[in-house]
Write a protein that binds this DNA or RNA. Sequence first.
DNA 1: TACAAAAATACAAACGTTTGCACAAAAAAC
DNA 2: GTTTTTTGTGCAAACGTTTGTATTTTTGTA
Lengths: 335, 335
Amino acid sequence: MKRATIIDIAKALGVTPSTVSRALSGSVRVSVATRKKVEEKAEELGYQPNVMASSLRRGRSDTIGMLVPRVNRHFFSHVISAVEQILNPAGYNLLICQSYERLYNEKLALQALLKNRVAGIIMSHSMETDNFDHIKSITNENIPLIQFDRASATVAGPRIINDNFSGAYMAVKHLIKSGYKRIAHLTGALSVNVYSERYRGYRYALEEASLPLLEEYVLEEAITKETGFERTRQLLETTETDAIFCAGDFSAIGAIQAIQSLGMKVPDDIGVVGFANEPFAELLTPKLTTVEQNAYDVGNKAARALIEIIEKGSLITDEEIIPVRLLVRESSIKF
Amino acid sequence: MKRATIIDIAKALGVTPSTVSRALSGSVRVSVATRKKVEEKAEELGYQPNVMASSLRRGRSDTIGMLVPRVNRHFFSHVISAVEQILNPAGYNLLICQSYERLYNEKLALQALLKNRVAGIIMSHSMETDNFDHIKSITNENIPLIQFDRASATVAGPRIINDNFSGAYMAVKHLIKSGYKRIAHLTGALSVNVYSERYRGYRYALEEASLPLLEEYVLEEAITKETGFERTRQLLETTETDAIFCAGDFSAIGAIQAIQSLGMKVPDDIGVVGFANEPFAELLTPKLTTVEQNAYDVGNKAARALIEIIEKGSLITDEEIIPVRLLVRESSIKF
DNA sequence: TACAAAAATACAAACGTTTGCACAAAAAAC
DNA sequence: GTTTTTTGTGCAAACGTTTGTATTTTTGTA
């Protein structure tokens, strides 16, 4: 009834557990004959190595912790998939946690990863996170940490981030080129690098075109469909906005619905651009112009950087910026 | 530099590791005074229990394995969230794996979970899975297993599944009531319970209305947007279909696009109903009528059933059917 | 004050691996 | 044919907990 151990294999074969261990781990210090016998016996007994015992003895595990705000975001789920594609073949497996955008959950998850003695962590912090001490304590514990997308420069270690500045710049420049002049910006907490960078890109594009940067055109805390809707109605009732650059596709939906609810048309009356290229973006009417992020590259680079640190002990602390792409569709072209 | 252990705490306090262990685990056999001292010292040293050592000694872990086809499906991600809401407070954490709809990955993931000695598994199998031996071997190993959504009755243990039959029946009955008569069905592999049940509901609704069940109206392997598109074009070019019941929202998008690409209109010429209520369903034009599943209930029940088995050793093998809801929107009402 | 009962703590083994070191047997070198 | 080297195994300790049993200390009772 009990699960087979290397001791069972050893006994059955008349050798010692150490030999079995060496045989299974592919050590050179064991003859081909015994290795074969051990492998056969292991198969026969349905042996599955006990990773706890192994990790305990070796002082490290082959589990990588991955902490994201939510798994069901197009970007994050694709990063996860890319990370798995690198990590699994390299012999690691992923312990995936979600913060659900809450700082409290983020701290809890980090604790859980610590307790599980993960070999490293790949994370993107929550929207509420504006203090990074709990993340710094991870690197202080000497656990390799890679930040991606949402990342603080105050935390040591590599950061793999999207070119939020250029994405925003391209988006707003495109709106200007399309003839829009009073461009508002719906965004999230500016304490999050992602949003501050997009805001910077927005400002830069306006400056470049000598358009004024108006205080009342920039609305924080507008990142969900609901808040996007509310802020947009408010905006349209109090200002002369003719276009909205949203820092996310969800708020862009809200914006479009608000615009339509006021009897105006997208893109004829108001132009809209989103960010992230969620799957629904091209299904909306009008199809949403948005900025596509290269989730595959982000995950790939993050995973490789982590392996580099774990296996080579490199102490790299740099920022890798992954290019983004503006997808021009219908919501931003008026004729 | 090294991480603190209970031995360090014990030494610092002049007691034995066993006392520390009991103090931290809240055993009654330890005085309040020492418990307090231990807790303070633990805090001071930044002690984090080593779950590997603990699990190894106890012979079981507090990790639950969760295996789903993909995390970025509306339904699955919400089930995960519901499961976490039950399991985390109960002291368990989740090891989430994805099969990406491939049998090979599913087997690999199950192996990984076994090696990690998870205390139990909550899973929904891949679309490719038509043989369940690898899943049965889990229950043979005496690891508590809960199947949800996609589940085989040949595997022992509880199954928490959506009322696919009723959902399909309601959807098709609704189409019939709306005046559609030649209703086609786009679905997935009928070896998957989910699809066979939806097919059964479809047939039942047709029978009830004395409508003929036509061979050429039922198309398997049409579950993605792309295959939905192709099958629908093919369908419209060779038959007199006037409505399509899709076993998933993704194929419904494909169907709608195919219909529109042939110059026809939804719902006026062809009615469409989907299944799953993906977030984009209500954003489509026309808004997609679809069947909503109660992911929260599914996850909740699955998690509770698992805890029941782990902690009480119950040997329940039953099927819990979670009600679904038809969301009537625009794509299925012609005037 | 003595003694039993209860409470608190100590002891030691065990969980299943891995690995440095020792050692024997076989192969190679002289 | 002896010595040296190589190759394959065995021995035993260690990783950090938990827990049954033994032992000590405290409390309560006569």
